[in-house]
Amino acid sequence: QRITLKDYAMRFGQTKTAKDLGVYQSAINKAIHAGRKIFLTINADGSVYAEEVKDGEVKPFPS
């Protein structure tokens, strides 16, 4: 399943989102408010992988 960072954070909370991605909650808040195009893939085992689309390139998040 693929979902935006904002939607994932709204569904699970910023604290869990940060923990799942290995970053601080403040980084999640800042990324959402900056309007960054970050998409999360939720794997069947429950693990989460995030990618950011920037300038036409897709890069892992966090980099």
Rank of each mutant, 00 (worst) to 15 (best):
F39M: 08
A31Q: 02
S63N: 14
I28N: 00
G13V: 01
D20T: 07
P62T: 04
V48P: 02
T15V: 13
G56H: 08
Q25H: 09
P60T: 07
S63Q: 12
I3G: 02
I32Q: 02
F39R: 03
G22R: 06
S63F: 08
K59N: 09
K30H: 15
V23C: 09
F61C: 06
V53W: 14
Y49S: 12
E57Q: 13
Y8G: 01
A27H: 11
I38Y: 01
R2D: 04
F61H: 02
D55N: 13
L21E: 00
T15Y: 14
N43C: 12
V23K: 02
N29A: 15
A18Q: 03
A44K: 10
G22Q: 06
V58T: 13
I28C: 01
A34F: 08
A18W: 03
L21W: 01
D7K: 05
R36N: 06
T15Q: 15
K6G: 09
A44E: 14
V48C: 06
Y24P: 15
V48M: 08
I28Y: 01
K59D: 05
L5Y: 01
A18S: 08
G22I: 03
F61D: 02
K19R: 13
L5T: 01
L5G: 00
I42E: 04
R36T: 06
K6M: 11
A9I: 15
P60H: 07
A31T: 04
T15I: 13
M10S: 13
I38P: 00
A18F: 02
F12Y: 14
S47I: 08
T4L: 08
Y49W: 14
Q1H: 09
Q14I: 15
G56P: 02
G46S: 06
V58Q: 06
G35R: 09
L40K: 00
I38L: 02
Q25D: 10
E51I: 10
L40S: 00
K37S: 13
L40R: 00
K6R: 12
R36I: 06
A50T: 02
D7R: 04
G56A: 07
D7P: 00
A27V: 14
K37T: 12
D55K: 08
A9S: 08
I3V: 12
K6L: 13
Y24A: 15
Q14D: 12
D45K: 04
Q25Y: 10
I32E: 01
G46W: 05
L21F: 02
I32A: 02
E51A: 05
I42K: 05
L21I: 07
A18T: 03
K19F: 09
N43T: 12
D55V: 06
Y49A: 09
E52M: 03
D7T: 04
S26T: 11
I28K: 00
G22S: 06
T15C: 13
D45T: 05
A34E: 14
G13R: 00
L5H: 00
K6S: 10
T4Q: 07
K37P: 12
R2P: 09
M10Y: 09
T41D: 05
E57K: 11
